[in-house]
Design a binder for these strands. Structure first.
Ligand SMILES: [Zn+2]
Ligand SMILES: [Zn+2]
Ligand SMILES: [Zn+2]
Ligand SMILES: [Zn+2]
Lengths: 154, 154
DNA sequence: TACACAACTGACAATTTTTTTCATTTTTGA
DNA sequence: TCAAAAATGAAAAAAATTGTCAGTTGTGTA
């Protein structure tokens, strides 16, 4: 977990640049987000996990921290079909949010970390004059594993 | 509003095919969705409007109807940054949900009705084995009007 | 017609998720 | 040292959504 510490320190710097502090509660939140990357946890789920490292934390603080991280573009909020807000740490060197594949058979959420939309966004600028700064893209469909299962059962 | 009536009748047929009825409450809901197309109204907002045509309707029925329409793929549920579910009628001949442009300056929501993702979805199939059946794509950025204003004020 | 049955409904209770309030604690910086 | 600012936890409140249930409506059938 050496990288984790580095990453947390780096995020601490970003907070300081914005005139905010990396309190123990915020550190625990960031560290939990790191630990459960790609899990797309909700505020409640995070709260439960964070409490294990930092029992002195309230749910409201978790919400406040997640809001803060989202505003500073350290984390991204994303909502899938259940309507609950979930949180992803933004990859360090990525300008844009990554994409998600939502399997409607097994419910699994996969991530795609290549951009895929560079050309589409140029088209959007030319045709609609809209300057894209970020995006949210989720595909609904059938994942590779489930496709295989369906074929075999025929 | 001739087209509206046609459209409602057509949706009524889809309901009947699924063994359900086009009750006055459901009719009023569909008609309101049609009337406020592209407005992306929430269940509450729709409820207020529907009540004007059909005062004998409860909020729960609006939720139930919207769920039903979503399951039958007559309507689409979409969630923007405020976390509230909003509803769009699906365009008749479209396989996929349309896209949205969210201006972070003026808050306006524009729609894009061309698909744009055909190639991207093929890539997703080839690289990840994921069979796309539908998608949600929202661009965050600055709309044409706001870009112009920003330029002028420099 | 009478009647059984399932679909549908509104009112309201309950639940879930998120935000607000407020008194207290911690940090900062003159 | 001490006042102001920032941050916090607990609890209340608000907002969004779902569940319950008794009553209604429409349909097919005896
Ligand atoms: Zn993700
Ligand atoms: Zn799957
Ligand atoms: Zn739309
Ligand atoms: Zn704008």
């Amino acid at each position: 977990m050496v990288f984790q510490e580095e990453r947390i320190t780096e995020i601490g710097k970003k907070l300081h640049q914005a005139g905010m502090k990396l309190t123990p509660q915020r550190r625990a939140t960031v560290s939990t987000l790191l630990e459960y990357q790609t899990k797309h946890l909700s505020a409640e789920e995070l709260f439960t996990l964070i409490k294990q490292k930092e029992p002195e934390i309230g749910l409201a603080t978790v919400y406040r921290t997640l809001d803060l991280l989202t505003e500073l573009r350290i984390a991204d909020r994303v909502t899938f079909e259940d309507g609950v807000a979930r949180y992803d740490l933004r990859c360090e060197d990525h300008q844009h949010f990554h994409h998600h594949l939502l399997c409607s058979v097994c419910g699994k959420v996969e991530e795609i970390h290549e951009d895929l939309l560079v050309e589409v966004e140029q088209e959007v600028l030319h045709k609609y004059g809209f300057k894209v700064r970020d995006h949210r893209l989720t595909f609904h469909g059938i994942c590779a594993a489930c496709s295989k299962n369906i074929k075999q059962s025929n």
